[in-house]
Design a protein around this nucleic acid. Structure first.
Lengths: 143, 143
DNA sequence: GAATATTAGTTTGATTTGTAACTAACAACA
DNA sequence: TGTTGTTAGTTACAAATCAAACTAATATTC
């Protein structure tokens, strides 16, 4: 058996997971401690805050989240009074979800935190590295 | 409020998670269906197969896995007869873990699969992109 | 060498996730 | 209309994860 160069750290699914894990911890601490939110909750909040009101289904598609996950996150956020849903009259299965005033405040805070957290991470890279990294990740998600 | 360029897909922890998720699915299918293994189990197996026998503690360190996770994975792999542990006599808290013959067969199979899976992913990138990507991920893990 | 502290690893109970079955509303078509 | 199919979302149960307490072995300190 010949000397083999393929290392675990070079295996993309593994390396991506490790990097995702490493970078998530810091931000997670923030939304968990300050707002008692879970990862999926944060994502749902962010989607609504960033892209405006939409249905749960739309969030599933955008965020690649399973409908049960979204369902639970929406409920949790409703309990926290960060979002509210109004049923659509032309199709009563659908609810248009939107952030409450309080929800928008929380979003604004998390948004700013995310932004500076990201900026701090970006400092480890050159402009070019950052571009390549973004491009690669984008490609991978679309596979 | 001015037009704002900071997008969720550009938020590194999020983008990394999405990419990790997207690339993991295919490989996961393999080790789950063929060997009934969980993610942590696969990782532990891979560590032992790639880097030789070591203690659970060493795996924790190398793989950044919590000891409870490793403990459970080791038990599961022992049940499947993929690994066995022999206690060290100078410190009986420690067990040297190593793959069984069967474990090495499974490792070899998964290793080859991982390798070609990774090669397939790599085809989406130029040599240079690939290099930058690896370098960036490595940096992020070490933060 | 007895008391205390650390370390490796396991177990336990609470939380979270995943899967699949379910309900309710709508759509298609006979 | 009524039967069948599809879609949005929920619920229920099993599986997995996390945090913290625990056990057993070793190290340290008095």
């Amino acid at each position: 058996m010949t000397e083999d160069e393929f290392d675990l750290d070079r295996f993309l699914p593994y390396a991506l997971n490790q990097a995702a894990e490493a970078t998530s911890v810091g931000f997670q601490k923030f939304y968990r401690q300050r707002y008692g939110m879970l990862r999926t909750e944060w994502r749902v909040l962010f989607h609504l805050g960033r892209y405006g009101e939409m249905t749960a289904k739309a969030i599933c598609g955008r965020a690649s989240l399973h409908k049960t996950k979204v369902s639970r996150a929406v409920n949790a956020l409703e309990q926290k009074r960060y979002l509210s849903g109004t049923p659509q009259q032309q199709d009563r299965r659908l609810e248009t979800l939107s952030l409450t005033r309080q929800g928008r405040v929380v979003y604004a805070d998390l948004y700013q935190t995310a932004k500076s957290y990201d900026a701090a991470l970006a400092e480890n890279f050159t402009e070019q590295e950052r571009e390549v990294l973004n491009r690669c990740l984008e490609k991978l998600v679309k596979l």
